[in-house]
Design a protein around this nucleic acid. Structure first.
Length: 585
RNA sequence: GGUCCCGUGGUGCAGCGGCCUAGCAUACGUCCCUGUCAAGGACGAGAUCGCCGGUUCGAAUCCGGUCGGGACCGCCA
């Protein structure tokens, strides 16, 4: 070993001892004949001192520069009275440099390691090895490691097996665009990188594994955003012979423990609130409600004989009371209206309750009774603003839900002192596509909630519920899962709903369907985003910060300078020819 | 595929038609300094303002294009 102690260790107990530490030059303070070096490693910082009298150690310390790598042997001594540094865990002592060895020099770093100033991301990722030495980056890596470690210990302690599934699988056109890898033995064929180990973990259950988990890399070739990138990591779990309640209980215990141990602010105490999808949509206009604030959506009343056409003809007129915003500016309202339109609403009506008056551009089309009903239904007080959307119940709720979400941040309504978790359960089994077809709400393997729900596929598919459950924390989906279909006939019936016939299903999901015929047990599980979890715990919105080697928004890796062209010989071997599309003018 | 914002010494910012011979902080280099811990002091070096083109007597500054980055929409079962 090149060291006997780390830079975080020296304390009073070591006074008088000769030790050797190694690390990076964090800072140098040169007083001429007295020179200090802060030596840094992952564990901490130790002050090293050398005084003149022509010592070689002093000459060595004086010559050293930022980020040089040193090995220093010296004697630990108590710092003189009045020079102790309470800000450092090692601040009671210092190391009197004896033998100083320069293990490596360093160019002047491209940005500061010893300051938490913002730096252009491309530069950070290009020099990630320098960036990782910075405190924030290091602590995020540490947090992520500790969270994953906690998860492993917890699940292993409950009898789970950690099993790695293959990363070269079959491409499936549903869902996100696949990352694809050419096959050399089978020219013209391609592997796909998994978007999640979904089918494989179900197959593990058929194999009798009973309790499985994996810290799994997932890949999708869709345009990156602040909170999503090509590669993310998910905690993938699956158990046999369980109901949704078993899985949510397991995860709730795990996550409550994680938040208790790692979050900078507490989770709201007690069992997590549980909403059906229908209730979450009705009350919050979202399937991942932010419970850090109230501001629930309401039905504004019956307008079936109203003079206002858009209200009369709509399936629902839903409202959101915004306390104290009766004097909202035209600009604010337009911004909210934009959000509503994004969810398909045709417009946004406003009712400003000012004293006994109600100001609204649509007031003249409504009867006084209708206006007072709006006030009563929403509980509006003088000074409040009521936002209303008339549309299908779903569109109206979603539109107001998005506005509500925005309010949480904008108006500072969200309680910043605690995290608020929730379960949303009983998702619909199927949804309408914009083109009028059917698609699955989460994944096509999700079991119907009950026999009647399966039957509803024949009569009223939108009402069919599933055994899907989602975990939401602070209005963000941290993960979700379901109890799976474990019978081939049921799976084929569900596929049929999406227009996937038996033959096509056999082609695309053959292995899983076959497996269902060989004694597949009922099973359930979940996939939970590790990156998002760490982001939530750390309070950052930037997913790249919690990954060790991030790419830019265009998916470029500034560190490895990738993607890159490959050797033509390799292309030939793979049977590939590159045709670069010409840009249209 | 689209919209918006940003690109100025190593880093972070300012300057937004002439006062710029481009300012500030920090880093960097040399020198002084025995108790600092964001050490201090003195001096110094370092930028054709991402790139190309245009407008103008004059462009870091205005316009167009392009490249790079970020945020967002589409997309993301």
């Amino acid at each position: 070993m090149l060291r006997t102690h780390t830079c975080g260790q020296p304390d009073k107990a070591l006074i008088g001892e000769t030790i050797t530490i190694a690390g990076w030059v964090h800072r140098r303070r040169d007083h001429g004949d007295l020179t200090f070096i802060d030596l840094r490693d992952r564990y901490g910082i130790t002050q090293v001192v050398a005084s003149a009298s022509g010592e070689p150690a002093h000459a060595a310390l004086a010559a050293v520069r930022s980020e040089w790598v040193l090995q220093i042997e010296g004697r630990v001594r108590a710092r003189p009275e009045g020079t102790r540094n309470p800000k450092l865990p090692t601040g009671e002592v210092e190391l009197v440099a004896g033998r100083v060895t320069v293990l490596n020099e360093s160019k002047t770093p491209p940005f500061y390691v010893n300051e938490e100033t913002p730096v252009d991301e491309t530069l950070r990722w290009k020099y990630r090895y320098v960036d990782l030495r910075r405190e924030r980056s290091r602590e995020l890596m540490r947090l992520r490691h500790e969270v994953v470690d906690h998860i492993r210990r917890h699940l292993v302690g409950q009898g789970f097996w950690e099993i790695e599934t293959t990363n070269l699988i079959r491409s499936d056109p549903t869902g996100a665009r696949d990352f694809v890898v050419p096959s050399r033995y089978y020219p013209g064929r391609f592997w796909a990188l998994p978007q999640s180990p979904q089918q494989l973990k179900q197959i593990l259950m058929v194999g009798g594994v009973d309790k499985y988990f994996q810290i799994a890399r997932c890949y999708r070739d869709e345009d990156p955003r602040a909170d999503r990138v090509y590669e993310h990591t998910q905690l993938d779990v699956e158990l046999s012979f369980v109901d949704p309640e078993d899985v949510t209980a397991l995860l709730e215990e795990l996550y409550t423990g994680i938040f208790k141990k790692f979050a900078s602010k507490p989770m709201r105490p007690g069992a997590w609130p549980r909403f059906t999808y229908a209730e979450a949509m009705r009350r919050y206009g979202s399937d991942r409600p932010d419970l850090r604030f109230g501001l629930e959506l309401v039905d504004l009343g019956d307008f079936t004989s109203s003079g206002l056409g858009v209200f009369r003809d709509a399936e629902a007129v839903r409202g959101l009371r915004v306390p104290g915003k009766a004097d909202a500016s035209r600009r604010e309202i337009e911004a909210w209206e934009q959000l509503a339109r994004r969810k398909g609403a045709k417009g946004l009506a406003t009712f400003a309750f000012k004293g006994s008056d109600v100001e609204s551009r649509v007031a003249k089309f409504l009867r006084p009774a209708e206006i007072s009903s709006i006030g009563a239904a929403s509980g509006a007080q003088p000074g409040d603003l009521v936002l209303a959307v008339a549309d299908s119940a779903h569109v109206a709720s979603e539109a107001l839900g998005l506005i509500r979400e925005k309010m949480g941040d904008e108006l500072g309504l969200a309680d910043a002192s605690a995290h608020a978790a929730a379960w949303v359960v009983e998702f619909p089994l199927v949804e309408r596509t914009p083109e009028g077809g059917w698609t699955f709400a989460h994944n096509p393997f999700c079991a119907p909630l009950a026999d009647e729900d399966l039957a509803l596929l024949d009569t009223d598919p939108l009402r069919a519920r599933s055994k899907q459950y989602d975990m939401a924390v602070d209005g963000k989906e941290l993960g979700g899962g379901s109890v799976r279909i474990h019978r081939r006939d049921v799976q084929e019936r569900v596929f049929a709903q999406f227009g996937v016939g038996k033959e096509e299903a056999a082609l695309r999901f053959g292995a899983l369907l076959d497996a269902l015929e060989y004694g597949a047990p009922p099973s359930g599980g979940a996939g939970l985003g590790i990156d998002r979890l760490v982001m939530t715990l750390a309070g950052t919105e930037n997913i790249r910060e919690v990954q060790a080697f991030p790419k830019t928004q265009t998916g470029f890796d500034p560190l490895l300078d990738a993607p890159a062209e490959i050797d033509p010989a390799l292309l030939k071997e793979l049977g590939l020819q590159v045709v670069i599309p010409t840009k249209r003018t």
